[in-house]
Every structure is written in C-alpha cells, then in structure tokens.
Design a protein around this nucleic acid. Structure first.
Lengths: 251, 251
DNA sequence: CCAATAGTGTCTGTAAGACAATATTGG
DNA sequence: CCAATATTGTCTTACAGACACTATTGG
C-alpha cells in the first residue's frame, strides 16, 4: 500500500475521496444475456441508466460491499461468481466529488426480477444487445463512465469463457451441453459447431460431470433428450475453448 | 459508480478513507527477475520491506499516481508497461485507518539503481527468488498485505507471457530470441526448448520483427551471433505460448 | 414417417514437443 | 579443430473445425 511517511498523519490532511463499488451483474434470460441496470432518480444523469453500486461501508470488505449492493437491488443473496473487474478513479468522473469506484463482475443463473431498491427509482434487466453488445447497433446511454465499465465486464466475461468454467455460473445446478453452448453463443455472439462443441466440452477434464440424468422433453417439436451435467471442479480449462473470431487463421 | 441517493450529500457524512496506489515494478537484471522494494522507515512494519506507493493526489488519475510514485523511487520516467492489478481494501489491512489501495504492475527494461526517495529509508531491487518465487524457499516478509499483492503481480506477469507480448517490455528496443527466451525461463522458472521456442516466436504474427541487425559477440566462448528483433505490433499472441507446467498432459 | 435435436466417427490442417542436423563464431 | 550458441528440418501426437452419420423423440 503506501503511507511510508508521517507515522501519525491526519486523514483530513488529504482531500476527501468517496470509495464506492459498482456491480455489473450478468445473467441469461431466455437465451439472451442481460445486465442489471437502474434508472437514476437524481442528478447528475437523472433518468439515465446506470450500474448499481454505492458507498463502501466502514468495516466492509470490497466484495462484501458489492454483494450487499447487489442484494439491495435484486434481493439475490448469493451470486455464484463474483470477481473484481477494475477500479475507476479518473478525476471528474463524478461531477460532485472525487469518487474512486471498485467495479465488480457478478454472474448468476436466472436471477429474479429486480425490485426497486431504496436508492434507485427503477431496477431492471436489460439485454446486452440494447447496449451495443450484439447484432443490434442500439446503444442506450449510461451514466458516468459506466459504459466503459460495462464494456470491460463484457470483454472479461467473453475472455473467461475461453479458459475458465465461468459459463456454468450462468446455468442451474444441472444443465445440458446445449444449454452450455447457448451461453457461449449468446455471449460471443456467434454460432458454434454443435457436434464439435459437445465433444470438446466433454474432453476437457473437470469441466462438466455426467449426472446420469436425462433432461425432460426440451422442445415441443421432438428431438432426442439430452443428458444432464453439473459443473466439475476444474478452475481452468485445458485445453481452452478458443473463440472462433479471436483465432485469426494465421492470417 | 454509485451515489444514487442524497444528491447533495456531504463527504464528511462518510468515514474517512485513504486512497493510495501501490506499485509492483518488475525488471530483469542479469537474467534474474527483480522487484522494487523499499525499506520502511516508520511504524507500522518499521524496517520491513514494502512495495512503493503513496497517496493519490487530488486531481491525479490512478495510473498517473502510480507512475509518479514509481518515478519518486527510481527516477524512471516512463515504464514501457503499466497496468492495474487489483484493489485491496480489506478493513484493517493498515492498522492506522481505512486504506483502499489500487495496486499496479509496472514492467521495464534494465531499470537503474533506485535512489532513496523522500518517503523511503531505502529502495532496492530484490530478486524474486528471495520472495518465494523461484527455486529457493527463502521468503522475505513484506509489510501489510504486500505479499499477496506481489503474488498476484507475479502470477499476472507469468500468465500474460503466454498470450501477450509483455515479455518484450523487459527488454531493450532490440533483442535476440535468446534474450526473449531468458525472460520466459526466468519468470516461469523452467527451461524451454530453445529450438522450438525460436520457431514458435517467429511464427506468431506481430510478435517480433527482424531488424536485419546482428547481435555483437554475445558470449566470450564462441557461438553463432544472433539476429536482433524488435517488438511487433501484436497485442495478443496467436497462437499463444503456453506454459509447460500449466499444460497437464490431458491427465 | 418427418422434423428436430443429441451425440459419435472420420478426416484434414495447424501447432507443440522431441530430436537431429546445419550454420556460425570465439578461442 | 573444438566448444558453444543460433537456426532450420523432420517426425509424432494432440486438437480444432468440417462433414457425415447414427440415436432418439414429439407429432
């Protein structure tokens, strides 16, 4: 850390800084990735969309603060996956005062409809496609530098699909390979070869474990019923599942 | 960020938080990776080693603060590579007050001997091997949670060697493939197959560019003189140079 | 039976690791 | 010439992507 000098400095010798957390909460609803956003009720950026977040409390760890803020918005108690994304502290990013915000990425399966929390006029799951991540070129404006934070979160998630089992965090306890593939396809925004994906996933040690169960009739139009899997204990995927687009054909 | 409520809140309504930066500066000196540490002159942790760092100034960006603190220790003006590592804010990590510190990783070639800055009794390049990263099991104790920060930095650097051209940041403008290999070997702490490494590096588009120059007599004991290369424009390596150890033989 | 989805078999090209062989260079 | 380092050739194996084919299941 720091503070090598003045062994008994006074905190008030230094300008006030607000320490906050912001959360990019991602989930999949109906094959489509969504992010939790709130509609700001106050200036600045009144009525525009923003990431949920808030002040870090005195004796609260950073991750704890992120989970608390998330819970206040969604009433979700635990997120299967939470990680620190990065810290945003450019002077002027909040016009009111110096704010240093630790951004987090949270991922969970089928999160419930959010309920408006005390500090948000409205909280809602918004498809990533409406924020510039997808086929549509629609791009809802976000408050502050939240567009940059969201972009970092989406890229982090996309990258981590390659070499970690993070995709399973979007799914229920038991899932089919097709459901897993849908996570990859919707986040990477491109179709994957079903047969090759199937074999590849099953060949990565510790990625998925066959439960022996069979999924109920998935669709209404026939088709073989799929086996159900659960997440394995691997934390890193070897070999990785590389993105088709990021793999330039040795061009 | 946050601050959805109280449109005209008073910063002093919230408990004082110190915002700092810490820097893990890595360089290679004589084939051996070193980290810049300072000897603390004051309590707490008086006389133990710590990472350089300090308060973020009022109108200073996070990266700017990191570079400034680094410059104060080493008189180094620019680091070829600087990235944010993560933020450490567990309550109690500094016994004096709540400190939230944004840790950075800096990499540079052959950095000069540090000069003791104003806020450090002594600053010095310390081999990573003396901190638990290497063959030796020596482990100098570090102040605060700096051991965890250093561990994160080393792992980040090791991982980034695989898929980014970060290794070239440790080297001068022009370098040989053998020098590049020495970076990988010393940080990964394992020998690499020289012939295969050579071909692999040259086959990754945009990793290194042949300058047409030939290195002067490298050793005193003969040997063909190597070609000199400079860093290419790739930001991501395709294909990656995977660590031997991280690649379990599909076990 | 037909349509649709799940899962397996093969084949081809790329790339990694092992090892051999060639090219230089100081002494 | 000898020792040491640089660079290139070959061969074997692993894995990704393409495609064909088999297995189920609803209607």
């Amino acid at each position: 850390m720091a503070v090598e000098e003045q062994p008994e400095y006074d905190p008030h010798d230094y300008p006030p800084v607000a320490a906050t957390v912001d959360i990019v909460a991602l989930t999949i609803r109906g094959e489509v990735p969504h992010v939790l956003l709130i509609r700001r009720g106050e200036t600045p950026h009144k009525n525009s969309w923003a990431l949920p977040g808030g002040f870090i409390r005195p004796d609260e760890d950073l991750a704890t603060a992120a989970l608390r803020e998330l819970a206040e918005e969604t009433h979700l108690i635990v997120a299967p996956h939470l990680e620190q994304l990065g810290t945003y502290g450019t002077p002027g990013r909040d016009p009111r005062m110096r704010v240093i915000s630790v951004a987090h990425l949270a991922i969970a399966a089928g999160l419930p409809e959010p309920k408006s929390g005390s500090d948000a006029a409205d909280a809602q799951w918004v498809p990533l496609s409406r924020l510039g991540f997808g086929d549509s070129d629609e791009t809802l404006p976000l408050a502050f530098d939240h567009a940059a934070i969201l972009a970092a979160a989406v890229e982090r998630a996309r990258a981590k699909l390659e070499y970690t089992p993070i995709a399973t965090s979007f799914l229920p306890q038991e899932f089919t390979i097709a459901q897993l593939r849908a996570i990859y396809e919707s986040l990477w925004n491109e179709p994957l070869h079903a047969a090759n994906f199937h074999r590849k996933v099953r060949s990565v040690p510790g990625f998925v474990i066959d439960t022996g169960h069979i999924a109920p009739s998935g669709t209404d139009k026939g088709g073989r019923r799929a086996r159900l899997y659960r997440a394995g204990d691997a934390t890193l995927l070897h070999p990785a599942l590389l993105r088709p687009s990021t793999t330039p054909p040795t061009a």
